[in-house]
Amino acid sequence: MAEIVMAALVLLGGFFCFVAGLGVLRLPDVLIRMHASTKAGTLGSGLILAAVAVYFADTATITRAVATILFLLITAPVAAHMIGRAAFRSGVELWKTKIEDDAERKLNR
């Protein structure tokens, strides 16, 4: 039973990782690509690390796996925010994007 759960976690995680990589290659501009890398990538790694925690099932490994998952969940959005701001300010080409209000002036694009 635990084996099937682990296999499902590993497969789902692998699938999310695959799609995240494909998204980074295929989607049309930087900011949209970051949607793929932040969300699908974090979820994929989180699922695989959860499978690791279930597989070893001892205190030390569970603690480390949970710590890694939490760390990824905290850092992924921060990293995305920093790259996004830098990309937007450096004026990369955005694909069919409607920019609202005075965002360009406020953010020193």
Binding site: G14, A20, S37, A87
Partner: peptide, 26 residues
């Protein structure tokens, strides 16, 4: 084509290799 694109790709590769390490641990 731009530097931010490359940083996003590098970041993505790091996260993917983290999950790779998890798989290899199993």
């Amino acid at each position: 084509p731009s530097l931010p694109d490359r940083i996003v790709a590098l970041d993505m590769m790091t996260v993917l290799i983290v999950s790779f390490c998890g798989l290899y641990a199993i």
